[in-house]
């Protein structure tokens, strides 16, 4: 049996009521008793619409947010029990690519600085010299389909698809095993989306990465993921093999969602 790399056990998150000038705001239950287990080397898709709690879950996995109840385990280690030094080492192994490639790169940093930053931050593990870091950055860029000539450029000189490639290179810089992909293609045009999706497939085959893919786009999830979980208003609605869920959804929510998916149905496509 394959071992799980990420286990989310009965996680709940409640945003507390805040006192404001006009009285108290209501409590918000962002996650309610969610349990998910992601196996090493697989692509796991998390599907949810806005307000479903998928962002809260992502932030919890990155330990940017602490769950109100439940545990999140990375390779059997409870994130909440890690010391800050251990947590920092863990950050090298869990990385994220964000949705908006225009906002997730610091406009004042060159591509070299952006891609080498994770190596610099984790240099106690990686132990690379300045030249080695630049070499590795160039390697990473060619891995994602860019070239060493791009090292001295700045983010604003790139198109959306190229920026997302830079984000992927940055995420790979610290040598992670688990990659959180937070809607990495939803800000891109379809033809560019196809390139980035192919790149992701290829990187996974080459580097043996585990993907935790968050999206509201069912077609993309079906294309990339081995297993899927549907989340609705903070609760896990359905989970299973991708084909099973798309071909025979059990819950009403899954049926509704799959039914609402706009699709280009073409005869010739079956070939």
């Amino acid at each position: 049996m394959p071992e799980p790399i990420l286990q989310i056990e009965n996680v709940s998150k409640i945003y507390g009521a805040r006192r404001t000038l006009f009285g108290r705001t209501a409590e918000v239950q962002a996650l309610n008793n969610v349990s998910i287990s992601v196996q090493k080397g697989e692509s796991f898709g998390l599907v949810g619409e806005s307000g479903s709690g998928k962002t809260t879950l992502t932030r919890s996995i990155l330990h940017l947010e602490t769950p109100t109840a439940g545990r999140i385990l990375f390779e059997g280690q409870d994130l909440a029990l890690l010391s800050s030094a251990e947590l920092r080492r863990l950050r090298a192994r869990v990385q994220i690519v964000f949705q908006d490639p225009y906002a997730s790169l610091n406009p004042r940093m060159s591509v070299r600085d952006i891609v080498t930053e994770p190596m610099l931050v984790h240099n106690d593990i990686l132990n690379l010299s300045r030249v080695q870091r630049t070499d590795r950055a160039a390697e990473l860029l060619s891995l994602v389909g860019l070239g060493p000539q791009h090292l001295s450029r700045f983010p604003h000189e790139f198109s959306g698809g190229q920026r997302q490639r830079i984000c992927i290179a940055r995420a790979l810089a610290s040598g992670p095993e688990l990659l959180l992909l937070d809607e990495p293609t939803s800000a891109l045009d379809v033809s560019v989306q196809a390139q980035v999706l192919n790149l992701l497939c290829d990187l996974q085959d080459r580097l043996g990465l585990t993907y935790f893919f968050i999206s509201h786009d069912l077609a993309v999830v079906r294309y990339l993921c081995d297993r899927v979980a549907l989340i609705y208003r903070g609760e896990l609605v359905e989970e299973g093999e991708t084909d099973e869920i798309f071909d025979a959804p059990k819950s009403d929510y899954a049926k509704m969602l799959i039914g609402a998916m706009p699709e280009v149905k073409v005869r010739g496509n079956a070939a």
């Binding site: 990155l62 947590l87 950050r91 964000f98 997730s104 610091n106 930053e117 994770p118 931050v121 610290s174």
Partner: peptide, 23 residues
């Protein structure tokens, strides 16, 4: 988002302030 990205990388607060926020 790029500040969140830096936090996710594991950058320490002074790095985030001086490298990502102040510039």
């Amino acid at each position: 988002v790029y500040v969140t990205a830096a936090r996710a990388i594991g950058a320490n607060p002074s790095r985030i302030l001086f490298r990502h926020i102040l510039p």
